[in-house]
Design a protein around this nucleic acid. Structure first.
Lengths: 168, 168
DNA sequence: ACAGCCATGTAATCGGTTACATGATTGG
DNA sequence: CCAATCATGTAACCGATTACATGGCTGT
């Protein structure tokens, strides 16, 4: 049986952690995430939840609030087991392998720019990283594990800034 | 005109930096990359180079070595201009935004595990990160910019390790 | 000479993004 | 009350992965 994708694992995790929810509510959590990676596009989430339902890792019921109907998904016991298997080792290689970093990729080709424009690149990147760091740092977090995860994001962002400082 | 994707920019960059090459030679550089993100799958590279050719950012000629024919792609002047525009600011949001990190994602849901298995998760992740760090550190690099990029990768990886240490 | 790998592709599939459609709700 | 936004989807498109096909090259 194939391993869960990052998106599938994350959706299952949200349903476990925050309780049964509509597809839209799951989307909101991703739209509100500080990382652009979690786009939370409708065309991804709705079909994904239907796939999970067919595999019986979530079950759905129709709920209505006021005059509006919606489908609410909750994680099943089998779904929780899949979630744990997705979280725990053994890890797929890309769980540990260094992530793609668009800044790092561009630095490989920085020799294509004349030196003045290289410095401009580094200064601009640093400035935007600092802004991003402040955004992350001001993220409101109550859950303990969310805070621990956020600390990882802060550390990585500070490491990227220190790296640019070294290059400047 | 739409911005280049990361893969398109990277392929253009390789053709600029290492000179004209076959699709396979471009693939090799990605297959040899320490990050699993650059899969270098044939079904990505070959069609991509044909797309770039149609937009006249690369041009192709057929070359033969021995009895084997192949198509060699070289970057054009227009391609170099696109490459610079891709490298330099203004940056798309995801260039600076924190990358998706599968470990960090899993930490959000670590509460689903009993404490002993949490620690096992952290220890295992740390061990694999250290191994990955050593792999990165032993990467043979001659080009100055490749070395600078690698330093960024090392810093980020050390930051992830320090983060796990903090959690342990 | 032949097994196994190298090199060059192509085709099917799959998942995600973008764009669209529709009706309910809310702010002014 | 009307416009804007919220909420719930659907469909077309697009790019990447996987798997396959083919033939040259190479070590033994």
């Amino acid at each position: 049986m194939r391993a869960l994708s990052e998106l599938e694992g994350c959706v299952l995790g949200i349903l476990w952690k925050r309780g049964a929810r509509s597809a839209y509510a799951v989307r909101r959590e991703m739209l509100d995430s500080p990382s652009t990676h979690w786009s939370g596009s409708a065309g991804a989430i709705y079909p994904l939840l239907e796939r999970l339902r067919k595999r019986e890792w979530v079950r759905s019921r129709t709920a209505s609030q006021g005059d509006r109907e919606s489908t609410v998904y909750g994680i099943t016991r089998a779904g929780r087991e899949r979630l744990l298997a997705w979280i725990e080792p053994p890890f797929e290689p890309d769980v540990v392998s260094i992530a793609m970093d668009p800044l790092r990729t561009r630095v490989h080709f920085l020799g294509a720019l004349p030196p003045a424009r290289r410095r401009a690149f580094l200064r601009q990147a640093r400035a935007e990283l600092v802004r991003h760091l402040e955004e992350l740092a001001s993220e409101p977090v109550t859950d303990e594990f969310d805070r621990q995860a956020l600390r990882g994001g802060l550390r990585v962002t500070r490491a990227r800034i220190a790296w640019l400082d070294e290059l400047l």
